[in-house]
């Protein structure tokens, strides 16, 4: 039983990018999110928005990947913001305090503005 996850990505100018996720992120597939994000970073993206509006379920493995990518971007002078989490996913950022680590905005446009893209 595999976990359903669709990952899309797009560039927004020379340094910004949006990773759009749809489905579920858990321990079985969080590495796919990490790989997709690192691919964007390797292509020069320093300002990354992860659009979670299509995510119905995410666990700590997904949160851990976001933290790791955030750290990587910070080391390169960039930043990460999260866009549009549904209430049950958004609540996780509050529970874990990660809403204090990176910006959580209502949509991708607002998140892009936050990271400076």
């Amino acid at each position: 039983m595999s976990t359903t996850l669709e990952i899309g990505s797009r560039r927004e100018g020379s340094e910004a990018g949006v990773l759009s996720l749809k489905g579920e992120v858990d321990v079985a597939n969080a590495h796919q999110v990490r790989d997709a994000a690192l691919k964007l970073v390797s292509e020069g993206v320093r300002l990354l928005v992860v659009d979670l509006s299509g995510i119905e379920y995410m666990d700590s493995a997904g949160l851990g990947v976001l933290v790791a990518i955030h750290k990587r971007l910070r080391e390169q002078g960039g930043s990460l913001a999260v866009a549009g989490p549904q209430p049950r996913v958004g609540r996780l950022f509050e529970i874990t305090g990660l809403s204090q680590v990176f910006a959580v905005r209502e949509d991708a446009a607002a998140a892009l503005k936050e990271v400076g893209g």
Binding site: D59, S60, A61, L63, G64, V65, V67, A68, K71, L92, I95, T96, L98, V101
Partner: peptide, 16 residues
């Protein structure tokens, strides 16, 4: 080090 996951997972369980 929340990227390790274990601490975050237990934090979530305790909250829910």
């Amino acid at each position: 080090d929340p990227a390790r996951g274990l601490g975050i997972g237990l934090q979530i369980i305790r909250a829910l």
